[in-house]
């Protein structure tokens, strides 16, 4: 049983259909990317998963069935609109929210010590939340999401306001949690983070899932028939090449339908060309995202 199974969910607010038809499943122990342009229906989908809204049609199964009060303690959620009590000390705020997730005060305190240390927030524990920088508040929010060791984490834009060092810290944490078997749904617009972290994705556009599956398979699916080549000297004329383009010293060869990358490689070797780089051109998630969304708009 997958931790999350979403089947043909529909949700409208009056005349606006926020989610028209979305289906996907999230497997245990994976980082799953929930992607889509602004206003695509991602947040509404998350709120439907978490039972904040009820779907008009379709079903949501979370941790093996409908949402219950007991299940809430097994889920960590960091919403798009960050929420911490601004007028109280960071430590007290996180302790309170942790006890609401079912942790005892002793256990919450013990875990909080470790996380504050890890995220370099120990010195700021007594400061009011509003006195912390945006980046610190973001780290505090992440601590709040993971402190009770949930088996399912839903996290919206985890890298906002983080510098490269803290971004790496959060990425390491997410990978560590995945390795421990935690399931993570990550909604983000930072496509390079998706490429680096996500195992599978769903792309939502105008309330519908338009792309869903294993990230590598999707990239291969959208790779087309192209290779990236860098050689010493001049690239000879090659048969079966449709177009040639250059970028930062690398040549991109778009191949004809009946020409394979292996054919090109064989030709280059036969021509005694010294190769510095030869790779099959796979599009970035960002390119796929733009292509799919633009196709949808057409």
């Amino acid at each position: 049983m997958n931790p999350i199974e979403v089947s043909h969910i529909v949700k409208s607010f009056g005349a606006t259909q926020a989610v028209a038809d979305v289906s996907f499943a999230v497997q245990r122990g994976e980082i799953f990317g929930l992607l889509g342009p602004n206003g695509a229906g991602k947040t509404t989908t998350i709120r439907l998963i978490l039972d904040i809204f009820k779907p008009e049609r379709g079903t949501v199964s979370i941790l093996g069935g409908s949402m219950t009060e007991a299940k809430k303690d097994r889920i960590g959620y960091m919403p798009e609109d960050r929420g911490l009590y601004q007028d109280i000390a960071l430590e007290r705020c996180l302790m309170y929210l942790a006890t609401l997730k079912g942790l005892s005060k002793v256990e919450a305190h013990k875990r909080l010590e470790d996380y504050l240390e890890r995220f370099d927030l120990s010195a700021h524990r007594k400061k009011k939340v509003k006195e912390l920088s945006k980046g610190m508040q973001q780290k505090a929010q992440i601590i709040n999401t993971v402190l009770h060791h949930p088996e399912l984490i839903i996290i919206d834009e985890p890298f906002t306001a983080l510098d490269p060092i803290n971004t790496q810290l959060v990425k390491d944490l997410m990978q560590e949690l995945r390795n421990q078997g935690t399931t993570i749904i990550m909604s983000t617009h930072q496509m390079h983070q998706v490429e680096e972290l996500c195992d599978r994705i769903v792309l939502i556009d105008e309330g519908r899932d338009v792309l869903y599956g294993n990230l590598e398979e999707i990239r291969r699916q959208y790779s087309g028939n192209a290779v990236l080549v860098r050689v010493v000297g001049t690239l000879p004329s090659l048969a079966g090449v449709e177009t040639i383009s250059y970028h930062n010293g690398t040549t991109k060869l778009m191949l004809m339908k009946d020409t394979s990358p292996q054919d090109v490689l064989n030709t280059l070797v036969a021509e005694n060309v010294i190769l510095e780089k030869f790779e099959i051109a796979i599009p970035s998630v960002s390119e796929i995202f733009i292509r799919v969304v633009e196709e949808g708009d057409r």
């Binding site: 609109d81 929420g83 929210l97 609401l100």
Partner: peptide, 17 residues
């Protein structure tokens, strides 16, 4: 109002009824 201003409502709704 404070819960709304602090944006804590959504976090609380996934912890409490």
């Amino acid at each position: 109002v404070e819960e709304k201003q602090n944006r804590t409502m959504e976090v609380l709704m996934t912890s409490l009824s």
